[in-house]
Design a protein around this nucleic acid. Structure first.
Length: 217
DNA sequence: CTATGATCATCC
DNA sequence: GGATGATCATAG
């Protein structure tokens, strides 16, 4: 690993181009993220509870971006995501989870066209970093792959169809009609602190994320 | 409370 | 073992 691996490539993470980020992230393949969490002061465990987003925060810091709650692509025109891979019964690494993309409200959904949605803004131009999940201890987690991905025309059409389906359900049956069974590539699911918070988020289903990573099904 | 970073827990 | 709903840490 580089001597200055903890330093941001640019003064402002937001100006980091995707090409530069991919170059820099390439040096992270094969690297254990866990020691970096300590180096960056990213909490992994707190009072016996896990910071589920620790790996994502570590990679953000690696690229020089501070944690923030802005509902926009992390680096201006492209989005960074970190996803876990886990060893399957057949001995191969597979995507462990769906990927949370962005939150939305019923009002957002009804008023915003797909082309103007946060969903497309984040999914359209993305960089996915895959890490190996070894166990709940998170004693070690090595970066397995890094991939830049632009939504293909076909995927984009299906994602739009999923978005329109969710809109249609909200308009005709109300927000409560939405659940994870809606959508083929992206799905609306409850998300947010506490139960019944009413928050919803769009999640990229495994098939889409797997395609982004360019790994077998 | 809402967003970010996500994964956990449970039900099928 | 996969899919869906619930939840954790942090920032504004």
């Amino acid at each position: 690993m580089h001597e200055d691996a903890q330093l941001p490539l640019l003064a402002s993470g937001r100006r980091l181009t995707r090409a530069d980020a991919l170059d820099r992230l390439a040096t992270l393949v094969g690297v254990d993220l866990r020691p970096l969490a300590d180096r960056y002061g990213v909490t992994v465990w707190r009072d016996g509870r896990r910071n589920k987003g620790w790996a994502g925060m570590v990679v953000e810091r690696y690229l020089g971006l501070a944690a923030n709650g802005t509902q926009a692509p992390d680096f201006g025109d492209w989005e960074l995501k970190v996803v876990p891979l886990a060893l399957a019964a057949d001995g191969r690494l597979r995507l462990k989870e769906t990927m949370a993309v962005t939150m939305f409200t019923a009002a957002d959904l009804e008023s915003r066209e797909f082309e103007e949605s946060h969903l497309l803004a984040k999914l359209g131009r993305i960089v996915v970093v895959a890490r190996v999940y070894e166990g709940p201890e998170e004693a070690r987690s090595v970066v397995q792959a890094v991939a830049g991905f632009d939504l293909t025309d076909a995927d984009r059409a299906q994602v739009r169809a999923d978005y329109e389906e969710a809109r249609w359900m909200v308009r005709t049956q109300g927000a409560w009609a939405l659940d994870g069974r809606v959508g083929r590539l992206v799905q609306p699911r409850p998300k947010g602190a506490g139960h019944g918070s009413g928050g919803m988020g769009f999640y990229a289903k495994k098939a889409l994320v797997t395609r982004m990573l360019g790994i077998g099904a």
